[in-house]
Write a protein that binds this DNA or RNA. Structure first.
Lengths: 152, 152
DNA sequence: TGACGGTCGATGCATCTGCATCTATATCCA
DNA sequence: TGGATATAGATGCAGATGCATCGACCGTCA
């Protein structure tokens, strides 16, 4: 017998919207950064995590966990960030394989400048389009889709 | 004076969720296709549009409008699809620059096989996580974020 | 201790993407 | 009509990504 695998119309619609809107928003935020002569969004994500981590820094594998980037992607992204002087790679004492990544002063400054543009994009693209209450609902619904689910 | 550009906490949270969840979902859907030995999601999008367009087919520039892919991306994607025999490129009479893209029988079959996997992903990743009513709300909220906004 | 499976991070290679530009055709308007 | 401008689609090149694998080091257990 034939197995039913087609999702409900509601699921399809929500999925389609999610795909299109996310692509569109990323594209627009990316373009705003580029227009301002700033690096791409990926850089922000990493700089953001590193800034939050503080002086202790983070191990590359921790970055892959937090940002969802692939391991090799982080590896090369960090190489670019280092080449631009935005991060420092430090040898870590207790694990000869590893290293600790720390954001540099230039990195913090870059993050600040990127946030000025990125934050404005978020305001325009999301903050200005929905009321605070709607944004909360949206975040909650999206939270249910995470794996593992969470609605904190 | 300093200009306030930082978005509201609600906007930041919704944005962050949207970025993470969309990436995660795409990754998982993509992986399901790969595991089944099927082409990537992009192919589905194009085959889907072409299937809906019917025998009349679509011009490449129409595909760029509907799928949000860049022009050069569509151009090369179509070359790959043609190489795999999933589409046909037809000369169009009234515009010597253009061509019409039509999905082939193999293309329809491939789309069908992809949908079996893709549809199941949508069900698992979205349909099974939220109630129909919640999915509607989600789609509506996301619709507000589109440019231009729409909540049909 | 020392062999072994596991983890950390880097990298060669093929593919894909972004950007700029190109060719060919169409459209517009003096 | 004919020259300027715009549009459709392709492509060379540089950079980014995915995949597989590598080398280095870790922890464990006989």
């Amino acid at each position: 017998m034939t197995e039913k695998t087609t999702p409900s119309p509601e699921a399809i619609k929500a999925w389609a919207r999610l795909m299109r809107v996310s692509r569109q928003l990323i594209e627009q935020a990316e373009e705003a950064l580029k227009t301002s002569g700033l690096p791409p969004l990926d850089w922000y994500d990493v700089l953001h995590e590193l800034a939050e981590a503080g002086e202790g820094g983070l191990r590359p594998f921790q970055l892959t966990e937090r940002t969802l980037f692939a391991q090799y992607n982080i590896s090369r992204l960090l190489a670019r960030l280092e080449a631009d002087g935005l991060i420092e790679k430090l040898k870590v004492a207790d694990d000869g394989r590893g290293q600790t990544i720390r954001i540099s002063a230039e990195g913090r400054e870059m993050r600040r400048r990127m946030w000025a543009v990125y934050g404005r994009s978020i305001t325009e693209l999301v903050g200005a389009k929905l009321a605070a209450e709607e944004l909360k609902i949206l975040a909650t619904l999206l939270g249910e889709l995470r794996h593992p689910p969470a609605d904190d």
